[in-house]
Nucleic acid binder design. Sequence first.
DNA 1: CGTAGGACGCGGACCACACTGCGCA
DNA 2: TTTGCGCAGTGTGGTCCGCGTCCTA
Length: 422
Amino acid sequence: MKNCSLGLLKDKVISVDDISSPISAQIFEFFNSELFPETLQSSGGTSSSNCCCEENSSCPTTLPLPPEINKFTCNPETTTLPLPSDISKFNSNHENNATTATTTSTTTTASNNSNLSIIFDSQEEIDNDISASIGFSPSPPFSVPPFFNPQSEQFDISPIPPQIQITDVVVDGLSQYPPDPAPALVGPPLPSVCEEECMSSIPPYMRLNPSSPSCSFIEPATMGSYLLGNFTAALSADSSGIFSGGVLMGPELQPQELEYQGDNGGIYCQDSMQRVFNSAELQALSGENQQLVGGGGTTTPLASEMSSLEESTFKVGKLSVEQRKEKIHRYMKKRNERNFSKKIKYACRKTLADSRPRVRGRFAKNDDFGEAPRASGGHHDEDDEEDMGMKEEDELADSSDILAHISGVNSFKCTFPIQSWI
DNA sequence: CGTAGGACGCGGACCACACTGCGCA
DNA sequence: TTTGCGCAGTGTGGTCCGCGTCCTA
């Protein structure tokens, strides 16, 4: 037992979490093209420099972005990707996003296919660059199964809680962001790392925190395509935080909802605002909200009005905002709870679980397991002589099931007290 | 073109119990 | 202050099952 405890402390955490999430970028591509087609179309000409690094951010904007990234982030060709009819559908079939997109889209051309392949291949290159840059092997300490390919991991997000990054925005307000964590990256410019950091920490389509240098995918110039008229001008260089939820959604949304705020900012608000508010309203709104945030972030009638308007008035496609919110919220919740890179917190528990007897996948009592052979052995006749009811038959079947489901020698160890062999 | 039914994949639930962490004496 | 005890909660993996989606007739 002592050994087990010591071992627990020693190798308490086996972290695979640092596995890079190459598909995050692909998510961004997918969502970008799926959810923001207008943006892509309108910003295609300016995609070279403003998609990944914001001008005023501390991210080394002079970094020569690899052409793959440019192509990857803002390729207008991909706007022919079909809009997801259902998030869950998109979720369950994310493995085949590329192929699905190309096969289901009636407007997709062969060139698009090639572009998609280019995009995804480019991502691999990016990942390699990341790995090479930060000395992190793309392969985790243990081998990744073949099916665990980037495309099947498209929704992987790093364990960095999204709340943290978005909360900063909410707390600090529209234009005040915490010091850029980028300085932690010492050394030569690592554009790929910038990309990776951004992609891995928050789903790209909701990654709107301008405090992270490279992560302002919707920078003012691009936002101009969303926001009509003077609203763009009203936005300062770092004003993309207006989409981070703290402003648009109003402070009444508490941190537990911030994750969703990110969704909203990336999915609903732009579309909704573009459709409903005219430029004058947006400008007024912007001014109001800037004052609001500067004044401590208390709820104002306008903010609450915005929320109510969003919830009750806006219609996105066939779904109401409410329905869409719910759908995406469920999706986000599921996705965040997903455990792509499973982290074994206690190796000892894993050992125990591995060696624990199972009945149909469920943990079984050691006693049951120990008595099972007897049940199928000498006592079997006695049981037959008795007028066994269905329950007893089931128990007997369970016993045979136990035997049938013994998963190897390790399970047999559990006939004995665990302590005896630890 | 619409519908029914099978096939398929995904994700949650379930199980036992060693271990952890905390409070209390 | 340290030690020991009790108790509630946690974490672990394989399998089953429900549900949603896709595909075919």
